[in-house]
Write a protein that binds this DNA or RNA. Structure first.
Lengths: 202, 202
DNA sequence: CGTCAATTTTAGCCAGACTAAATTATGGAC
DNA sequence: GTCCATAATTTAGTCTGGCTAAAATTGACG
């Protein structure tokens, strides 16, 4: 079937421009951040000045091997340049009591929103206040998450397995596994959530 | 100078085998995890069965564009397959009071070690107990970190800027910026640390 | 055994990964 | 302003590896 193959090529080509442009911009930003010239990076990566220049301007795409070398020359790692980049308000420090709160769905459960500390951050965090008896829906999505139970008593169901957590306990899961939570205590529970996927898409 | 260029090519070639082998293994593992055949992934990625097979076995290397398509066909993302993969003991839940503790350097400061919840996790966490007056060295390294101050009062210096945190406050920084911390309170402080780089290399 | 689907192997094309060299742009000294 | 050195971009071209189509092999099942 030559027709699908032709279409495949077209698809692959279409994906390239935006990938290259973003990748190139990030590589240049990083190079400038560490104060290296094109020549220095090229020498360290064992590639030519011209090629690095073209990569940065999205004109050429490096192979994976070359990208590894460039990332290393930039004192970084490949995944750092290929991750999704949220761009929004940032605050290094977030003080208790002075945070924006959000109600999503249930009015009794609310979240303290913790802004990311710097552009390009991969971690996102929030403090979740869960009233007694509250049960969440079962979720499954990309990323991973870490939960520290600040106060209260919660039960977490992960891929059918149940875990009971008390204050000071932690939970760390691959978010792709179906998971849900329930406040099984008598008081409002507070959980600190830190994860790798974006919160509040707005 | 043709001699350096020749050497450059040799370097680039040497980097390939190990990259491809690891990448291919991860791609195959993911494909099996979601129960897709080579053909299904190939169709979804608009590539051929033979090529996917060769990628998985480290015989061929995809271009970035093709890798994006494959990752998407695997319902995942590129950086997920290119990140550093620690492999060790795992525990979804970590209970307070039943954790291994570590003393690194200072004997008065110790850490509660929180195991990662699953293989391939990118997040690492620990609880740090910092005695009054304790001052850390200034550090700078790859990754990013999120700190939640559980108890006490700490001052954090980040790239020359100082931040005072009380219980319940948070800090989120790019670990490459020079940073240090000091317990400026009268009691032992406990900080929860969640980061993207590996702890305790052992 | 035969059948069929899944995977691997083989042989080959050609475009893009990357080069060397020329040209242009930039910044600093005078 | 000119001059010079360095940094960056452009150009023209090579060649190899990204990727294909098709054949062969493997594995599962009745």
């Amino acid at each position: 079937m030559p027709a699908p193959a032709m279409e495949a090529t077209a698809t692959a080509k279409r994906a390239e421009p935006s990938i290259d442009k973003t990748l190139g911009e990030r590589l240049r930003a990083r190079r400038k951040a560490i104060g290296k010239t094109l020549k220095q990076v090229a020498d360290d990566a064992s590639l030519t000045v011209g090629f690095i220049s073209q990569i940065e301007r999205g004109i050429s795409t490096p192979s994976l091997a070359s990208l590894y070398n460039v990332a290393h020359a930039l004192e970084s790692s490949v995944d750092h340049f290929l991750s999704k980049a949220p761009a929004r308000h940032h605050s290094v420090v977030s003080h208790s009591g002075k945070r924006q709160t959000y109600h999503v769905g249930d009015t009794a459960r609310f979240y303290e929103f913790l802004e990311t500390g710097f552009p390009g951050a991969q971690l996102n965090a929030c403090l979740s206040h869960v009233p007694p008896g509250h049960v969440s829906e079962t979720m499954s999505h990309e990323g991973e998450e870490f939960v520290y139970l600040v106060t209260g008593e919660m039960r977490y169901s992960v891929d059918g397995v149940e875990y009971l957590l008390n204050a000071g306990d932690t939970l760390h899961i691959d978010s792709r596994t179906p998971h849900s939570s329930a406040n099984v205590g008598a008081e409002t529970a507070i959980e600190l959530w830190v994860g790798t996927m974006q919160l509040f898409p707005q």
